[in-house]
Each structure stands twice: as C-alpha cells, then as structure tokens.
C-alpha cells in the first residue's frame, strides 16, 4: 500500500488484514489441535468431557482457511486515489 498512486489497479500485496488474521488464528488452531490430540484425560474431564482444545483448534483452522479463501477470491484492489488529499 506504500505507493498507491502508481498504477490504477494494484493488489495490496502482503498487508491484507484478512491474511494476518488467518495467520494468527490458524497458528492458534494448529497449536490447540495438537494439544487436543495429545490431551490428558484428566484435563478433558475438567471441561465436562468436552475436548475443547481439539474442537476449538479444528474450528479455528477452518476459520483461517475460509479467511484465506476470501482474501484469494476478493483481493484488495487499490484504486487510483479518488479523494484528493487535503
């Protein structure tokens, strides 16, 4: 986004907040899923038998995948500067 006036249509490159969100939530999903798989049964019992690390982790991985998909399908297009700067 540094030089947004150079070409009329330009993809925003690395800094798409959706990708950043997906990266963070995806890493959490990965860590939690692994923790869920190797979970100590006593810990699982704490949550009433629900392995929340595993299910939460999987849900976060799915969420991250959807966000990446969204960013891929609708990339940010930086238009020519429509508002003259004050």
């Amino acid at each position: 986004m540094a030089d947004q006036t150079s070409t009329p249509k330009q993809k925003a490159g690395a800094f798409d907040i959706r990708v950043v969100i997906a990266a963070l939530i995806g890493s959490y999903g990965l860590v939690l899923t692994i923790l869920g798989i190797i979970a100590d049964p006593a810990e699982v019992a704490k949550a009433g038998g629900l392995n929340i690390n595993l299910w939460g982790g999987i849900a976060m991985l799915v969420f991250a995948a959807l966000f990446v998909l969204w960013a891929r399908l609708r990339p940010i297009v930086v238009p020519v500067d429509e508002h003259p700067r004050e």
Partner: peptide
C-alpha cells in the same frame, strides 16, 4: 482492533460452549 475482535471471540466462544456443555 479487528484482530482483537477475532481473538476475543476465539477466547470467549469456547468458554461459553464448555460452560453450557458442563
């Protein structure tokens, strides 16, 4: 703030689900 929003949801939603389950 947008990132925080998702982290807050990722933190509180599982807590609610586990709580309701229990």
């Amino acid at each position: 703030e947008v990132l925080q929003f998702f982290v807050i949801v990722a933190a509180l939603l599982p807590l609610t689900i586990v709580g309701l389950h229990k």
